[in-house]
Design a protein around this nucleic acid. Structure first.
Lengths: 109, 109
DNA sequence: ATATAATTTGGCTATATTGCCAAATAGCCA
DNA sequence: TGGCTATTTGGCAATATAGCCAAATTATAT
């Protein structure tokens, strides 16, 4: 594997990693409905504000969200709507896995 | 956040997590060109066979690949082609990030 | 200036992940 | 059976991640 391939793959992995956490997926889903400030997200998520803030920092670092400070609040928005298509693909996999489990469970043993 | 939402999101995160590693992304990319056995992948990746085998187990557990033992080899195939669309979206984000860095680097300071 | 509210940062512990080595397993062939 | 090859499994050490609390930062209003 040449170095260019390596780097390309690592860039991608960094972004996917940023999405690979339930809380951050939830945030992305919320932002797909419009901007949200840290406080709103924190209330929905039920973790410490600092934890939510750190998750947002991860998403921002990956280039997935933008932040916009207005007054005391910082409003976050989704930067890349195509992420949502990605998520619907992931949902297909979830469904396929469930179907398979049904088949496995229902099959002869 | 109700329990159903929680579970849905965790299912998704599990799958995304399986993709969130350079080696596993590389494997998925290779499999998009056709089936590969563990040995072939190991040679390309340059890690221990056991390491590659464990990465493959992660992908399999997430329902992303199938394995098929034929003789001594185990051949792995991609189970969900839509994953590739997902990756092309990720690539868009990579590009957007790069572009932004160029702008930032070139901007006035 | 002070008080208050929203957010971020630093620091800590607990847990999870990665990669290696060694050993176990599975299939083929003599 | 015994040897050989491909793959998986177990176990360990190093590193990364997540969450909490406390403290710092930023903006508003009195």
């Amino acid at each position: 594997m040449d170095q260019q391939t390596q780097q390309r793959i690592e860039s991608r992995a960094r972004i996917i990693k940023a999405l690979a956490h339930p809380t951050r997926l939830f945030i992305v889903e919320q932002l797909s409905h419009g901007e949200r400030c840290v406080n709103e997200l924190t209330e929905m998520i039920g973790h410490d504000t600092s934890t939510v803030s750190k998750h947002l920092a991860v998403l921002k670092n990956a280039g997935l969200v933008n932040d916009d400070k207005r007054g005391l609040q910082v409003y976050y928005t989704l930067k890349t709507p195509c992420i949502l298509n990605f998520l619907s693909c992931v949902e297909d996999v979830v469904q396929a896995n469930l179907d398979e489990q049904l088949i496995t469970a229902g099959g002869s043993d």
